[in-house]
């Protein structure tokens, strides 16, 4: 679904004398169809830029300099600018304000569907489904500007998911949400992924969410892939992740601390796994 080959990217320089740094600097990445990939990394490691590259917004909208290629479902983003990718890629920006502009919540979700040229009955059905799934029923006639931060975020997610893109690119989808809101978004993503067999690339700083849901994760450092693998294999490497500025699940830290103290070899990442493992040990 996604192939990123030898990509370097720099935003346009702030002044002509100072060359802009390579924000992405030799990135190699492939994502299989149907995979849920989490992208982690310190601030300024290139996570948001990677999202913009996958949607073709970089370099088409941002300008700047790019080498290498990004291929989405067989289409090179150099030759297929964002409108030509819109039927395949759905992008969620980190700040929901960046993508909300319709007069009502309902219209916001319907807007993309109208642009796809779907019949009105289909649009109504998808809008109802998304508003229910993300808990926005009660605010459907409100203006997006009047919503709370968490509601805005969920609305932006609903609008992207309603389009059922084959590739979902989500930049910090849980950022700023309360714990219940995070659970709601993860459940919605999980549902749709199974139903529509969507591919998900999500930057995320909450390691608990990554441990529960992602098939695979990559950690970016200095604009390239510093570590890649299954969450279980990576999250137990606490020191390497910490050096890359990445948070680790509490359960992974507990497993590591217990192994050190008790000589055990726990590898749990979630509360349920820890319950089972410790239950057997204590039972």
């Amino acid at each position: 679904m996604v192939v990123v080959e030898g990509v370097r990217f720099a935003y346009p320089p702030l002044s002509p004398e100072v060359p802009a740094p390579w924000v992405i600097d030799g990135l190699e990445l492939t994502v299989r169809a149907g995979e849920w990939l989490a992208v982690m990394g310190a601030s300024d490691s290139g996570k948001t830029t990677l999202c913009l590259l996958l949607a073709g917004l970089a370099p088409h909208l941002t300008g700047g300099e790019m080498t290498g290629r990004v291929v989405i479902a067989g289409r090179d983003t150099r030759h297929h600018p964002p409108p030509a990718l819109a039927d395949t890629v759905g992008l969620l920006f980190q700040e929901p304000e960046a993508q909300l502009f319709n007069p009502t919540v309902e219209a916001e979700v319907a807007w993309g569907l109208e642009n796809l040229g779907l019949p009105p009955a289909e649009i109504r059905a998808r809008v109802d489904e998304m508003l229910a799934l993300l808990g926005l029923d009660l605010v459907r006639y409100r203006a997006p500007g009047q919503l709370s931060g968490g509601e805005k975020k969920r609305l932006a997610i609903a609008a992207v998911l309603a389009m059922r893109p084959a590739l979902l690119v989500l930049d910090e989808p849980m950022g700023g949400l309360d714990p219940a809101g995070r659970a709601q978004v993860l459940a919605a993503l999980s549902d749709l992924r199974h139903r529509d067999s969507a591919t998900i690339v999500m930057t995320e700083s909450d390691p608990e969410a990554v441990a529960l849901f992602a098939d695979r994760m990559v950690v970016l450092g200095e604009g390239r892939v510093a570590l890649a693998g299954k969450p279980r294999d990576l999250f137990l490497q606490l020191d390497r992740l910490s050096a890359l500025g990445v948070a680790t699940p509490q359960m992974a830290r507990l497993a590591t601390a217990l192994n050190r103290r008790l000589g055990t070899d726990f590898d749990f990442l979630t509360v349920d796994e820890a319950k089972t493992a410790l239950g057997e040990c204590l039972g």
Binding site: D178, Q250, M251, T270, A274, K275, L278, G279
Partner: peptide
Amino acid sequence: ASLIPPPVVLLAEALRPYG
């Protein structure tokens, strides 16, 4: 109030029956 205790607290609760 849409709050969820952190994983360590949930695990401590689950291990209380073991003492």
